[in-house]
Simulated assay, not measured.
Amino acid sequence: MELITTVNELLSELNKRKQYIIDWENPDMYLNHLEYHSASGLFPGGGINPARGDGSDNVYCFFKAV
Rank of each mutant, 00 (worst) to 15 (best):
S56V: 02
G46E: 08
F62C: 03
I48E: 15
S12F: 10
E13A: 14
E25A: 11
N8Q: 03
H33G: 02
E9L: 13
V59M: 00
N49T: 11
E9K: 11
R17F: 11
F62I: 01
G53W: 02
D54S: 08
T6P: 00
N15E: 04
D54R: 00
A51L: 08
F43T: 13
A51W: 09
W24D: 15
Y30P: 13
S56C: 01
L3Y: 10
M29K: 12
G47R: 08
Q19L: 13
V66W: 05
S12P: 00
A39I: 03
T5M: 00
D57T: 07
G47E: 15
H33L: 08
N26Q: 14
N49C: 06
D28F: 09
N15C: 06
T6F: 09
N8G: 06
D54F: 05
D23I: 00
M29A: 09
K64V: 04
I4N: 13
L42D: 13
G41A: 10
L34W: 07
D54Q: 11
A51N: 06
T6E: 15
D57V: 04
A65F: 12
Y20H: 14
Y20L: 10
F63S: 03
G41N: 08
I21L: 15
K18L: 13
L31P: 09
K18Q: 15
G47K: 08
I21R: 11
P50W: 11
E25F: 07
K18H: 14
N58G: 03
A51T: 06
N32D: 07
K18T: 11
E25K: 10
E25Y: 10
K18G: 08
C61L: 06
N26L: 10
Y36M: 01
D28K: 11
W24C: 07
M1C: 02
E13F: 08
L10H: 11
S56Q: 03
Y20P: 14
L3F: 12
V66K: 15
K16A: 15
S56R: 01
L14V: 04
G53E: 03
E2T: 00
Y60W: 01
R52G: 15
Y30S: 08
